[in-house]
C-alpha cells in the first residue's frame, strides 16, 4: 500500500499538524514515511506545500512525481488548485476547505473559483471553517479537513482518532474532544457525498 499526498495552504494555516497526525498513525502501523516541508521565507503568508508520502515499501524520493499524487489536502481553495499538476488525473482526490484566505489584492473571484473546483472529478469541498466554529473551535478547521480526507487514506479511522488524541493530549481534554468532534464532522460530511 502506498499513498502520496500534497498538503497545501498558506503559511501559518497549520497544514503541518495534519501531516504530524497522519504520520504518527502511519508510523505506528509500521509504514514508511517521507515528508518534505517548506520552511523559511514562504512561511510569511506565502503559498506553502508539503509532499507527504506513506508506503509499506521503502520510499525513494522526498518529492512526489508529477501526476502521481493520490490526494491533495488543502486548507484553502485557490491553493488546492495550484498543485493539480501533481494530482493523478484519473484516480486522484482533491479535498479542500472552501473558505478563501485573502491576503493578496488580486485574489480570484470566489464564484469562478468554485466553478473551477466543480469541474474536478473526485473532490470533497467543505466549509471547514463554519463546521469548526459551530463545534466551538474556529482554529480546528484543519481537523475538519483531515476528517473529510480520512475515508480515502487507507488507515482505519480509529487509528487516526488515536493519533489526534496523542497529538493534542498535552493541551488537555477539552482541546482533544473538540478536535475529535471536528475530525468526525469532516468524516461524516465526506461520507454523505
Amino acid at each position: 500500500m502506498k499513498i502520496d499526498i500534497i498538503l497545501a495552504g498558506v503559511g501559518g494555516q497549520g497544514i503541518l499538524s495534519i501531516a504530524t497526525i497522519v504520520g504518527y498513525a502511519a508510523v505506528k502501523r509500521g509504514m514508511y514515511m517521507k515528508q518534505a516541508e517548506v520552511h523559511g521565507m514562504s512561511q510569511r503568508g506565502g503559498d506553502v506545500q508539503s509532499h507527504f508520502r506513506l508506503s509499506d515499501q521503502e520510499i525513494a524520493s522526498d518529492l512526489i512525481p508529477m501526476g502521481k499524487a493520490d490526494m491533495i489536502i488543502s486548507v484553502e481553495p485557490m491553493e488546492s488548485l495550484r498543485y493539480l499538476p501533481w494530482l493523478n488525473p484519473e484516480t486522484g482526490w482533491l479535498i479542500t476547505n472552501d473558505q478563501p484566505f485573502i491576503n493578496i489584492p488580486n485574489y480570484p473571484d470566489t464564484e469562478k473559483l468554485s466553478e473551477e473546483l466543480g469541474k474536478l472529478k473526485n473532490k470533497v469541498v467543505i466549509n471547514a471553517d463554519q463546521i469548526a466554529k459551530d463545534l466551538g473551535s474556529a482554529r480546528s478547521a484543519n481537523m475538519v479537513i483531515l476528517g473529510a480526507a480520512s475515508p480515502y487514506l487507507g488507515i482505519p479511522f480509529e487509528e487516526i482518532e488515536a493519533a489526534v488524541r496523542e497529538t493534542f493530549a498535552r493541551k488537555g481534554d477539552d482541546v482533544v474532544n473538540t478536535n475529535i468532534a471536528c475530525l468526525r464532522a469532516g468524516k461524516e460530511f465526506a461520507e454523505k457525498l
Binding site: 521565507m41 503568508g45 506565502g46 488548485l81 493539480l84 493578496i104 473571484d109
Partner: peptide, 11 residues
Amino acid sequence: VPELVVPRPPA
C-alpha cells in the same frame, strides 16, 4: 494549473 490561480508571495 487553472489560469485563475495567482501567485501568493510571502508578505
